[in-house]
Amino acid sequence: MKTITRRKLSAILGGGLLVISAITASITTAGAQEKINVGALRFTSHSASFVALERGYFKEQGLDVTFKFFQAAQPMAVAIASGDVDFGVTAISGGLINLANKGAIKVIGGALQEEPGIDGQMILVSKKAFDEGVTKPAMLKGRSYGITQAGSSFHYMAAKIAQKEGFPSSDIKVKPLQKVGAIIGALKSGQIDAWSIVPHIAKGLAKSPAVEIIGNISDYIPDYQVTTVFTSADNAANKKDLVKRFLAAFSKGADDFNAALVDKTAGDQAAEDMVKLIHKYVYTSRPYEKAAPSIRNGAMRINKNAKLNLTNVKDQLAWFQSEGLVSKDITIDTLVDSSFVETY
């Protein structure tokens, strides 16, 4: 009897309290639910998972999901390798490839995707560099470029800009600064000339007089598979059913997200609801009015059905190998298990 009243109650309270209903539901049907941990960063790009939990898509798949939040992608990858976390979403980096090479993790699907026509990652320059004539990415030759680490996605983007503009990538002087905060500081004070970053941060920075936007990454890597879904090699090999169920729920969350904020086909109310849902996880320390524009600006397409752009992933792997950051012996099959999603 008790369970029925609880369900009724949660139904009355509606969407905002879906979490409670999910929790109570999971208590009532605990026997049938499989407990898994999903790693996440508090970024808009991780919204597919948040939506899937909030709207009960994980529950539909019989998954009792607990989020483990991380400050950076790197410890999340380690947590997956160690088995503390089952699934995660992050950019492909040298570290991720090396962990795959050690037989610890597999990429199983695609998430964030650059797409012409939708605001993607943007190329920024400092005011000082802008005044010196760096008004187009083609002018970056001989300029310094902030990255977190050698082998990070920032490093890849810098190399790709150089490649497309027809000068050797060594002509862009990359400066490893470890942390996004340090890069922003260096860019604002003119210590480095350029950087590239996701749209909501880029637009926020461009509001200050110290930083100018000079281009879009999608012009240089039009099909850039920015982030991928990955899991432990053990899950990919031995728990194929679990992986499929996770991806199904994740995709459903991604569909809602795309419809509400990327394609904007679901209407204003749905967009508003979506922003409110995401705000529970992202920018939680800011009031809703301030967080909402950042969340909207940060919306980039999350691939339908977690499709994976294998062509671009291969290009990324080849680049890491050409830079000597990962072993030349690593094949794409070591990194990716393409049996779960459509690849192209």
């Binding site: 040298g94 570290g95 090396n98 680490q149 050698a150 082998g151 490893p176 950051l325």
Partner: peptide
Amino acid sequence: AYILLAGSLFA
């Protein structure tokens, strides 16, 4: 820097 790079590459 060598150690930091090795760490980020899981080398």
